[in-house]
């Protein structure tokens, strides 16, 4: 009887240990996905957003990116290589076009083709309302690269997959 009690206690301790490990030491995949969750959170905009929140969100966006990030978007002039500061400016101007904005990511498939490099294939959906009252609802497939710099996963490349080429 005593042995069974000890066994139960040991099992409980092992289960708690495993849970704590998963909670406090997330896998690299979870860390990468967390970056997308943060990007989604910072890009989103509620109606009547004040300047303080806007500034915090822009700052939050900029720290998610590496020193440089490459954007490949066919048929748009946005394609190119941008510094972190330039990305902050683009995010600021882009968000200013909307009174409400939501950016959600779905179906994230994370792989690690090299050490300290993550490739993520995902679906991105942008919804919102422009300041002129136009509703926006765009969905695209993306391929993103993130590099691990000083233990942080930073966005280094965004490519919008061209499914329909005119």
């Amino acid at each position: 009887m005593v042995k069974i009690k000890y066994l139960i206690v040991v099992l409980l301790i092992v289960m708690v240990g495993i849970s704590v490990t998963f909670l406090f030491f997330p896998s690299e995949e979870k860390k990468v996905k967390k970056r997308f969750a943060l990007l989604s959170e910072h890009m989103s905009k509620d109606y009547g957003e004040n300047t303080f929140i806007m500034a915090n969100k822009i700052k939050g966006i900029s720290v998610l990116f590496g020193e440089n990030c490459n954007f490949t978007v066919s048929d748009y002039s946005l394609s190119g290589n941008y510094t972190r500061e330039e990305i902050s400016g683009i995010a600021l101007r882009g968000r200013a076009h909307f009174s409400t904005l939501g950016l959600k990511f779905y179906d994230l498939k994370v792989s690690f083709p090299e050490k300290d490099l993550a490739q993520v294939n995902l679906t991105a959906r942008l919804t919102g309302k422009s300041v002129y009252g136009e509703h926006v609802d765009e969905t695209r497939e993306l391929m993103c690269l993130l590099k691990k710099v000083e233990k942080k996963w930073l966005f280094s490349s965004f490519e919008v997959i061209e499914v329909l080429k005119r």
Binding site: D107, L122, T123, A124, T139, R140, E141, V163, L164
Partner: peptide, 10 residues
């Protein structure tokens, strides 16, 4: 049916 994005958007 064309797969437009991910496994759900067609």
């Amino acid at each position: 049916v064309v797969r437009f994005a991910g496994s759900k958007v067609m």
